[in-house]
Write a protein that binds this DNA or RNA. Structure first.
Lengths: 346, 346
DNA sequence: CTGTTAGCGCTTTCAT
DNA sequence: ATGAAAGCGCTAACAG
């Protein structure tokens, strides 16, 4: 049995360059193959291959440890095609929604030795082409990019796309239809109110965004309530703008008694604005949001909202399955929304 | 001059597998070397090597495009040692601080073709060992991990570490001393107030955290004001807890006229609480935060805070320089804090 | 049980 | 100006 060679210069764990499998092999007096078996694939398993003696395995592991060996994942990837990595392309990282995605994926992937990495760039197309992870999640795709997705997935990339109305074309689609959910939100308010304002984005209104804006109009019409222009106001991405808009709606004599906000974060700003004005949320004014974020749930007062149930967990499940090589036909998964009635609107 | 071969099967941009440099070379009727030159290094440059004829280069590019070629970054990395990637290990992704780091790095790195990737895991040690990017940023290191950092950097990894009191040992250290800054915050309040409360974390108090907690005590002592236990309250990571704590401080007869919060996010919650109680922030009660986040700056009313100046940009500069191979000796960079006086405390 | 060997896709001398 | 060929670190057949 070969002993660990003891050349004085080379056993230092802290060296200049990086430690390779070859160096470890040499130090341990075995071949690179054995080292590879022990350090990556299984070693002691009685399977057909990979049978490395316990003793040898021990020695290799000791030497590797002492030398501070760490596998080069790029090299491994080039050989196996797997990177043990999931890429999450998230456009609005500040949004609690994104954090929820991350956390859910984290929880599922890490125990399996898969590392989720986040790409905080709106332009996923450039990066996803070359950087390839075992699976990638894309949270926003603009109209023209659909084709690109198909191209990517036919090149072997495993994609999971979040989109409201896209069809699975080589990639999975997570669809979370806000429309019906928003109807629930409006219905909830319509039970007790007829002076209902909406806090939304310019874009949603221009395009008559069927998902989040139309249910407001439809709801009023259905209830026979005329639409008032002065009960419609807008915000952009910043909380400050939502706060300001809510102020405009609430700080006047003929103020609405309820606000339907097309985003949880806008709803939260509206609550702050109402409180600033001395209004009791849930009593003087009701507020509902859309998205059912945990931030809204844990705020004071807790935010009534609509959202999909079990969404993040299921998303993570699918993504991780794909990363592990699940070869089922790409599918679309629809989520049903429900109303989560809390303090801000009973 | 060889024509682009026109075998019917293989010119399809959307194929089963991935397109390699070899396939492109074959299609274009040139060698892989030429393709590599054109597609990665410079092609037409009159430099000593890499001289590829304009015509050839054109053809290669066309073919590559048509076939949907994208370089395999793992393969490239194994050869060049560069991944054109920066890894950001951020523990509190929900914190605006992290977002600011991301944005700053993004802005500097992307124009240079470097992609920042985020690792949202507290345990950076495991990942950073194998996954190596051109440079990596670590925003939190626990006491025992210091040694590991040195080990990593002596293996050729370029690290930039954020820590208040660490010495550069093979890696750069970004030091942002909160202490002096917090003194500024207290001094600011002490000009007009003697009933000053503090909103802080249990941990900071227990360990008599010199940076953020002690300046409160020292400030009061220096001004000859006795410390009141009932003017000290605590929050944990959630905004809800900070809100609740602020409520406890403010919702009673002998309430403080100023709140020193050891975090911007806590300060923001305090402002919300004050408004909820009908108090005018900046008039009935002053609030200052620590960190000088842009969220605080853009909130209504804008938050007075202390923080380092030009911090994120400089951090990004250093990180990107390292990623590009800057070989200067590792150094420690200290940031000076200043007071940003805004509406919440004049 | 262990070693030899052939690549993965790419870059980079070194010839031609 | 272009191509042949040698590897980077690793894994996976295949021999022994």
């Amino acid at each position: 049995m070969p002993k660990e060679s003891t050349s004085p210069m080379s056993t230092n764990p802290v060296q200049g360059g990086k430690v390779t499998i070859k160096q470890v092999a040499q130090q341990a007096g075995v071949s690179t193959a054995s080292v590879s078996y022990v350090l990556s694939g299984r070693s002691g398993a009685t399977g057909r291959n990979g049978g490395v003696a316990q003793e040898t395995a021990q020695r290799i592991r000791r030497v590797a440890e002492r030398m501070g060996y760490a596998p080069d994942l790029a090299a491994r990837k080039i050989r196996t095609g797997r990177s043990d990595t999931i890429l999450l392309s998230l456009t609005m990282l500040s949004d609690p929604w994104s954090l929820a995605v991350i956390e859910a994926v984290q929880r599922r992937a890490m125990p399996l030795g898969i590392t989720p990495m986040i790409l905080a760039d709106a332009d996923w197309s450039r990066v996803l082409k070359s950087h390839d992870a075992d699976a990638m999640f894309v949270d926003a795709v603009s109209p023209g990019q659909e084709e690109l997705l198909t191209a990517l997935s036919s090149q072997g990339k495993r994609l999971v796309v979040f989109h409201e109305e896209m069809q699975p074309k080589g990639f999975d689609v997570i669809r979370s239809l806000a429309g019906p959910g928003c109807v629930l939100a409006m219905d909830h308010l319509l039970r007790n109110h007829h002076k209902i304002a909406i806090l939304t984005t310019e874009r949603a209104r221009e395009r008559h965004d069927s998902a989040r804006f139309m249910p407001y109009l439809d709801g009023l019409v259905k209830a026979g309530i005329p639409v008032r222009e002065d009960y419609i106001d807008f915000f952009d991405r910043s909380p400050a703008s939502a706060y300001a808009a809510a102020m405009r709606l609430l700080d006047r004599p003929d103020r609405p008694t309820a606000i339907y906000a097309t985003t949880d974060f806008a709803a939260m700003s509206a609550i702050n604005a109402a409180q600033r004005l001395g209004l009791r949320v849930g009593v003087d004014v009701d507020v509902v949001g859309v998205g059912n974020t945990s931030e809204g749930e844990s705020m004071v007062p807790s935010l009534t909202s609509v959202g999909p149930e079990g969404f993040f967990d299921e998303l993570a499940r699918i993504l991780v399955a794909r990363a592990q090589g699940d070869e089922q036909d790409p599918r679309a998964v629809d989520f049903h929304w429900k109303l989560f009635s809390r303090e801000s609107a009973r």
